[in-house]
Design a protein around this nucleic acid. Structure first.
Length: 467
RNA sequence: GUCCCCAUCGUCUAGAGGCCUAGGACACCUGGUUUUCAUCCAGGCAACAGGGGUUCGACUCCCCUUGGGGACACCA
């Protein structure tokens, strides 16, 4: 049974890289009829917050990445870790180290200065025939894993291929702090083992932790899972994404008017491919997904392409299904919808013209409230020549009973013909008066949806201002 | 500094020795459709980092160089 997991640490929101890791992990489980486990790695008490846990849960729920098991919280599994540490202490695969943090820092600094890789010097590491220093009084020790010193650790990474690292490169990692709490590298090992994880799909930044983890698994007599290390996502400028540089939570995409299906499709194509396929839904993705077609190199995030996906999925939506969302967004924009509700007809008129739902909300706002019209714009299009024409058209519209697109078309067309007017002479001033923007969908449809009273009122307002 | 990883159009990528005069997508440009804009349609621009090998043949395999990234915490 395939079991994958997503193991975020709740120190911030679920960012785009984390979301992709979760997506791939989740999809792998789906593809193989396996299970997807969610595990919250909250052992860093200083930085973990319940808000962050919630943000991660929200983000995953929004994307529809549902877990089959969990969330497990590492802080609630302390007893398990401590038992294992005790056992390792007893069988000699771990030992107490009394070196102070200060002396360790000093050691690291001097090693860096000498140009060698900083690592623990094995001061307290027990060895056959070695006499350990005298245990200092009142110093609570940390526990270190006794890593093998010779040979190499290797594994066949599912995305990067074979990776080998010499044990000589590894030092004895701390698995329990002085206060007795276990550290990340140890918890991961125990959890992946005890939770029966078969494929560990995680970020690139863990490649260097993998050999230590494999060594610990061996010491524990546990089976080693398969590993797949995903390369990271870079900002659109090629630089690393960080809090102060472009990294935002996935929920921010919701805020900004992106559809989860667009984010999902985009993320799926970032570093993974299925021939020339660009547009596919989540079910299709789960059917196709495999680890063989993941690019081992880092990928740059592109808002342009995300926008393209989003525009596509917005077009695909039924207008009805967008009514609720747009109502919320318009309300947030401060648009009063009490008198005129958002309708699917209005949405339909604009949904293929935007790339985000926020743009859609902004675009249709003029249906519900009088837009602010640039005086200069009105001046330009409702000029000396246009005023009498519009007054005359106003009179005709006032008499017009039917107020649908086709009859308006018939009326205005006849009006233009009778007066020998070219289309722009009528349309441009109308746009200026009604919406204050010179580009719009079919003007007759706009007029029909605006309603007779509103059209006349706006024309009137503009014409009065004129004189 | 040490170790690990990576390297095809501006960007995301296809490519598992001959199918490659290197394909698709985004962006960009041109044309068409359109009352305007957008959509849509048609077309175009644009890449195998460099140098050595291996081979009849290399984008594909090996080595080096260069460039980029990551890891080196009592963080995860």
């Amino acid at each position: 049974m395939v079991r994958t997991r997503f193991a975020p640490s709740p120190t911030g929101f679920l960012h785009i890289g984390g979301a992709r890791t979760a997506l791939f992990s989740w999809a792998y489980a789906q593809r193989h009829q396996g299970q997807f486990v969610l595990r919250v790695e909250d052992t860093d008490v200083e930085r973990s917050t319940p808000e962050a846990v919630q943000a991660i849960l929200d983000g995953m729920a929004w994307l529809g990445l549902n877990h089959d098991e969990g969330p497990h919280y590492q802080m609630q599994r302390m007893d398990i870790y401590k038992q294992h540490i005790q056992k390792m202490l007893e069988d000699g695969s771990a030992y107490y180290c009394y070196s102070s943090k200060e002396s360790l820092d000093a050691l690291r600094a001097s090693q860096m200065e000498q140009g060698i890789k900083p690592r623990y010097d094995g001061h307290w590491r027990p060895e056959a025939g070695k006499v350990l220093p005298e245990v200092p009084q009142g110093v609570p020790p940390v526990v270190r894993f006794k890593n093998p010193q010779t040979g190499t650790v290797s594994w066949d990474d599912l995305v990067k291929g074979r990776i080998e690292i010499a044990n000589a490169e590894l030092d004895d990692v701390i698995i329990a702090r002085a206060d007795g709490t276990p550290t990340y590298n140890f918890c991961v090992v125990i959890d992946d083992w005890e939770m029966g994880i078969t494929q560990v799909i995680r970020g690139d930044d863990h490649v260097n932790n993998t050999p230590r983890q494999i060594n610990m698994l061996h010491a524990l007599g546990a089976e080693v899972p398969q590993y797949a290390h995903l390369s990271m996502i870079l900002g659109s400028d090629g630089a690393k994404l960080s809090k102060r540089h472009g990294a935002v939570g996935v929920m921010q995409y919701h805020e900004d008017g992106y559809l989860p299906e667009a984010v999902l499709n985009y993320l799926a194509r970032l570093g993974w491919s299925h021939g020339d396929a660009e547009l596919f839904n989540i079910d299709q993705f789960c059917e196709w997904f495999d680890l063989d077609h993941i690019t081992p190199s880092a990928a740059q995030f592109s808002t342009e392409k995300l926008n393209w996906y989003n525009a596509h999925y917005i077009k695909e939506k039924s207008p009805e299904s967008l009514v609720g969302d747009l109502t919320e967004r318009l309300t947030k924009l401060g648009v009063n919808l009490e008198n005129t509700p958002v309708t699917s007809d209005i949405i339909a008129l604009y949904q293929e013209r935007v790339s985000t739902l926020n743009e859609l909300a902004e675009a249709i706002a003029f249906f519900f409230q009088m837009p602010a019209i640039e005086p200069a714009l009105l001046e330009k299009h409702l000029n000396e020549a246009a005023v009498p024409v519009m007054k005359s058209l106003y009179a005709q519209l006032e008499q017009h009973e039917a107020w649908d697109k086709d009859s308006l078309n018939a009326l205005v067309s006849a009006f233009m013909k009778d007066n020998g007017l070219k289309i722009p002479k009528v349309f441009m001033p109308m746009r200026a008066m009604l919406i204050g923007i010179m580009q719009s969908p079919d003007l007759y449809a706009v007029m029909a949806l605006l309603g007779k009273a509103e059209v006349l009122a706006r024309m009137n307002l503009a014409l009065i201002k004129k004189h």
